[in-house]
Nucleic acid binder design. Structure first.
Length: 858
RNA sequence: GGGUGAUUAGCUCAGUUGGCUAGAGCAUCUCGUUUACACCGAGAGGGUCGGGGGUUCGAGUCCCUCAUCACCCACCA
């Protein structure tokens, strides 16, 4: 025998992947179908290692692509990697810090090229991990998010928006991380509940007629107040509106205004307005044409616009100082605990400061409106469908998108500012130059880069060489976009919006969102908790196939799920099951090519197994067509294990039908291939049915033909065998045992099968039956057991009878219900009737047995 | 403050458009040295589908409500 007893994945996996790569079978090619199928891999961070989420992500994509490839469709799985701008720069800065340096020691070009080298060093690592997962990606189409074509596409999109007035530059409130020195989009801010305080401060009226008390959680920002607002309906303050306040600690006078946004119930009902440091106040300032005074700078320190004593203080120190000073002046009325939600940098946890900064913004309304329409029209299928609703709601409330980032590692924004007129900006892609001259005038490059999500929004079509590439024509829109549910808003939404905007078409036909993979106890995995599980370690431990199947077992779209190592064990055992089925078949029929002939069913078991395969092929295909990966895997698992291994192979031990065995092996290898590509291909290659034949591009199986009557007969054998096994096991019967029957032709014919499978010594025809009458079939047959056993078995018979009575009762009451007869489908009613008959017949048999031995007992 | 999802066997979860006696894996118990496989085989036990109400001939599945958990969104000074 060629195959060793246990499947050792690591002995084969690398060679098998190499075989696939050398044969270039991952390049899409039509083989008997004109259809195309395409998935573009959501590019993982080129610098990082793949995590379990990627493991799940890649497994799902690869199963889908392998299935469609076997169906003969030109199937593309396009690999890529993300420069992951901010993320990567943060990692690199940490590395610099270890060397006692920081980003401020280098200019933008230096930093960029250093990070480029840093990322390039890790590229091998990243590609190796794709291969380890068994990804059937076309490496010749590999794309990096900083590849020229991606940058070019990004610039063209930006230009189109520029020309069509969707891009604007403006001084707006920006979410700013003072530690990293960059702004963020709204969606990138992580809000956390923190225990804070609320201070009530007395603001004296200029006319000396009293005070107005305001409530604030950020007293230090009062230095930048330019008004106090009250609700116009608030009777308490009716007379205050229009008056002015002498702002404490400063020399400024500010007005009291009325604005409906003020909540009468909250605090004192009077709100200090700090337009430069609060989004609400910013909006109010626009409405009332108030000045905006920046009192906090981009390093988180108080600016020169504050009184001298505060200048240069950190926000925290300034808060303390301001509170102390107010207290001293008797203006601090009250301090209360006040837990509230504060935005933090999702990387370093620094409190995000809303700061006034000039940035590039994209007007989102027209883009969102179009996306909402295609979603409402069901143009894109969502798994799970509930995510579509959430996306629509998100798009409806979408605000303009800040795409400027103050980092080095990214795609430079192709915009230049006039040196003469700072208001004047021009679009130009000569970003390698700091200063350009156009029409004799000097322009200075914007030092910022694009938000990474801006360039990656074009991923579905820029990777396919939009607009003229062959790939674009053949593979766009993508068949499926598979990604984490957590990036539905930042990425999926933008791909849809920009896809529609640039290509006039939806970017993908379906979206499958997987949930978070948590640790074994259901907690979120994080480095700080130290509960991160490395997929490569699991692959090392169990093999790739087991890893893949373990990841999708029990997986459903959209739901978070704890990592379950027992699933990997089960999947590993399944690989070994496949392996040993192959060993058995190899032993029985050899491994020669002439054995691969069309299946010729002879025995009832042959017909039965073909029917099972047919059913399984149909079901697996159906599930895969509908992106139900877990169900598809479950189907294959049980076909292989239960039907093929436990029943058919056991049945065929007496007489092997090599054409059927060969066919079974071929079919189950194909069915299992998308899930377990390595073990199936390894077996396939060992058998070498044809020269150069590769399982990964073999034809997806089609349903075999079989004889229905034969199938039913095998089902009878199955129930007899199951009943005998049950009796033996329950009654602890050991040793020889005979099955007698009263001249049943069927049992004469198939007796040997029963002998082999139920471990019965003989199946004999007798004049008068002896022993326990089997009740699972209509055939007259007895298991030859002694009187004591029979007496003990009576208890079981009683139990079964009461169960049957219960069932009969249910069925009868259903049929007595006139509405049921009238309204339920006829087919169902008929079914109920025949069920009732069967149940009654079965009960009669049980009763007969019971009675027969009950008498002997007395 | 809004929204979404979850709640089914000891554990992790399936359960298509409502339809038969609700499934799987793991775990548990009882047997088994049957050469394809102990990463195995045979058998068994275990659930009033979170609570309550409703629609229906029929509800794990649809509707209402309550509870618990998780996540997301939001401008609460």
């Amino acid at each position: 025998m060629k195959l060793p007893k246990v499947y050792e994945p690591h002995e084969y996996e690398n060679d098998i992947y190499e075989l696939w790569e050398k044969a270039e079978i991952f390049k899409p090619k039509n083989r008997g179908s004109d259809n195309s199928y395409s998935i573009v891999v959501p590019p993982p961070n080129a610098n990082g290692n793949l995590h379990l989420g990627h493991g799940l992500n890649h497994t799902i994509m690869d199963i889908a692509v392998r299935y469609h490839r076997m169906k003969g469709e030109a199937s593309l799985l396009l690999p890529g990697a993300d420069h992951a701008g901010f993320e990567t720069q943060v990692v690199y800065e940490k590395k610099l810090a270890e060397q006692g340096k920081s980003r401020f020691d280098f200019n933008r070009e230096e930093l960029y090229s250093q990070i480029w080298d840093f990322v390039a060093e890790n590229r091998d690592n990243y590609e190796t991990q794709f291969r380890k997962l068994g990804d059937s990606v076309d490496w010749s189409r590999y794309v990096f998010t900083l590849d020229e074509k991606i940058i070019k596409r990004t610039y063209e999109t930006f230009k189109k928006m520029w020309d069509e007035g969707l891009v604007y530059r403006g001084e707006r409130l920006v979410n700013f991380c003072t530690h990293h020195g960059t702004g963020f989009a709204d969606i990138e801010v992580a809000y956390k509940d923190v225990p804070g305080h609320i201070w009530s401060i007395k603001y004296p009226l200029t006319d000396g007629s009293g005070n107005l008390t305001v409530a604030t959680t950020r007293p230090e920002t009062m230095l930048g107040d330019t008004a106090v607002a009250v609700n116009p309906k608030d009777k308490r303050y009716k007379n205050y509106v229009g008056k002015t306040i002498k702002l404490p600690l400063t020399n400024r006078e500010i007005p009291i205004i009325a604005d409906g946004f003020v909540d009468v119930e909250f605090g004192t009902g009077a709100v200090k307005i700090t337009p430069a440091h609060d989004p609400n106040d910013y909006d109010a300032a626009l409405r009332h044409d108030l000045p905006m005074i920046s009192v906090i700078d981009h390093e988180g320190k108080m600016t020169h616009q504050t009184p001298e004593k505060y200048r240069g203080l950190t926000v925290a120190d300034a808060r303390k100082a301001v509170v102390d000073d107010l207290k001293e002046q008797g203006l601090l009325e009250e301090v209360k605990d006040h837990p509230h939600s504060v935005g933090h940098c999702y990387k370093c946890g620094t409190v995000i400061e809303p700061l006034l900064r000039e940035q590039w913004f994209i007007t989102m309304k027209p883009l969102a409106t179009r996306a909402i329409k295609v979603l409402r029209d069901d143009k894109i299928k969502f798994y799970p469908s509930s995510k579509k609703k959430q996306l629509i709601e998100y798009l409806e409330g979408l605000k303009d998108w800040n795409i400027s980032r103050q980092i080095a590692w990214g795609i430079p924004i192709p915009a230049f500012q006039s040196q003469e007129d700072p208001e004047h900006w021009i679009f130009d892609t000569r970003v390698d130059q700091e200063i350009i001259v156009v029409d004799g005038k000097k322009y200075v490059r914007d030092p910022d880069v694009f938000d990474t999500w801006f360039s990656s929004s074009s991923w579905p079509y820029s990777t396919l060489d939009y607009p003229d590439g062959e790939d674009f024509k053949k593979f766009y829109p993508l068949s499926l976009m598979e990604t984490g549910a957590d990036i539905l808003f930042p990425w999926v939404s933008r791909m849809i919006m920009l896809g529609l905007y640039v290509t006039d078409t939806i970017p993908f036909e379906a979206v499958y969102l997987h949930g978070l993979v948590q640790d074994e106890h259901g907690a979120k995995m994080s480095k700080s908790k130290g509960n991160v599980i490395d997929p490569m370690e699991k692959i090392q431990e169990f093999g790739t196939d087991a890893f893949r199947m373990g990841m999708i077992a029990n997986e459903t779209a959209g739901n978070n799920r704890p990592f379950d190592p027992s699933k990997l064990v089960g999947a590993r055992n399944f690989c070994n099951k496949l392996w040993n089925i192959a060993r058995f078949i190899e032993d029985k029929v050899g491994d020669k090519s002439h054995l691969r002939v069309s299946p010729k069913a002879e025995t009832i078991a042959d017909h039965w197994v073909l029917s099972k395969l047919q059913h399984s092929i149909e079901k697996t295909s159906f599930y895969l067509e509908n992106n139900k990966f877990n169900e598809a895997y479950d189907t294959v698992y049980h076909t292989v294990w239960d039907d093929v291994a436990d029943w058919y192979i056991e049945a065929s031990k007496g007489s092997a039908n090599s054409s059927i065995l060969g066919y079974i092996l071929e079919t189950i290898l194909k069915l299992a291939h998308p899930f377990a590509p390595f073990v199936t291909e390894t077996i396939w290659q060992t058998f070498k049915w044809e020269d150069d034949s590769i399982l990964a591009i073999s034809e997806w199986p089609s349903a075999p033909k079989y004889n229905k009557a034969a199938v039913e007969n095998f089902e009878i054998i199955k129930s007899i065998v199951t009943e005998i096994r049950y009796i033996r096991s329950e009654m602890h019967l050991k040793g020889e045992i005979n099955l007698y029957h009263g001249g049943e032709k069927f049992l004469n014919e198939h007796g040997s099968l029963i002998c082999a499978m139920a471990k019965v010594s003989n199946v004999k025809e007798v004049e008068a039956g002896r022993g326990l009458h089997l009740t699972s079939t209509k055939l007259k047959c007895w298991l030859d057991v002694d009187q004591e056993t029979i007496q003990n078995f009576l208890v079981k018979l009683e139990q079964k009878q009461s169960e049957q009575k219960q069932i009969i009762k249910q069925l009868e009451s259903r049929l007595e219900n006139k509405s049921y007869i009238k309204k339920a489908p006829k087919k169902l009613v008929d079914e109920t009737k025949s069920q009732l008959e069967e149940a009654k017949a079965f009960l009669a048999k049980l009763a007969e047995e019971s009675k027969r031995f009950g008498k002997t007992n007395t």
